[in-house]
């Protein structure tokens, strides 16, 4: 039997509680992360949806930014959804809130609010490369898109000819919110990416 994976969920602001529930349902042990000490012993980390400027601000004031950078450099597996995707990106395209240094966990350019304001938010079925079981029902809330990516990034899903999900090594990002629907295949996919879990 393998050890249960300890997966942190950045809990500064946003939809972190729903991610924790989803992780629990797929057999992981979720841990809310608000301070540096919460980062110790994690097998993986989820950067949830919320407001990317707010979460970015709180990452700095909480002192988590440095430990996050260190963990990312050491190869901690990450799942970033919506605002989490923006935070994980190597580059943020307009509207950029300020000149904050990006985390650069995945070699993509993220374009914030690319679909428009809330009245343009939507849900739709999308096809995801490598995900068995048919289309995934995806909820896009003031969502970003992946505008450009490095050659070793795999784009896994598209909506209206815009890239909305990608993977590079152990970092997985999506522009939509898998925590808002009961389908747990993306959380399962992520937990399976955590080293040691592949064989079970």
């Amino acid at each position: 039997m393998t050890r249960q994976r300890r997966v942190g969920v950045l809990a500064l602001q946003g939809a972190f509680a729903l991610h924790a529930e989803a992780l629990h349902e797929v057999g992981a042990d979720p841990v809310e992360v608000r301070a540096r000490d919460d980062m110790s012993g994690l097998d993986a980390l989820v950067l949830p949806g919320g407001e990317s400027t707010t979460i970015g601000h709180l990452l700095r004031t909480s002192g988590l930014w440095e430990s996050l950078r260190t963990s990312v450099a050491a190869g901690l597996p990450l799942l970033g959804t919506c605002a989490g995707m923006i935070i994980a990106a190597r580059e943020i395209v307009a509207p950029a809130p300020n000149d904050r240094e990006p985390l650069g966990a995945i070699g993509i350019s993220a374009h914030r609010n690319a679909f428009g304001r809330q009245v343009e938010s939507f849900e739709a079925d999308i096809e995801i490369d490598g995900l068995a079981g048919g289309p995934f029902h995806a909820v896009f809330i003031r969502a970003p898109v992946i505008e450009a990516w490095e050659s070793d990034v795999s784009v896994l899903a598209w909506q209206n000819e815009r890239a909305v999900m990608a993977r590079q090594g152990s970092v997985l990002v999506c522009a939509f919110h898998p925590e808002l629907t009961p389908d747990r295949r993306i959380h399962e996919m992520f937990v399976r990416m955590v080293p040691g879990e592949e064989t079970t």
Partner: peptide, 22 residues
């Protein structure tokens, strides 16, 4: 594929994203 706007899930979804905030 087809996009549905203004659904309960989309409306409540933005409120979910504002949680823990000011």
């Amino acid at each position: 594929m087809g996009e549905e706007r203004g659904t309960d899930r989309v409306k409540r979804g933005l409120a979910e994203m504002l949680k823990g905030g000011v």
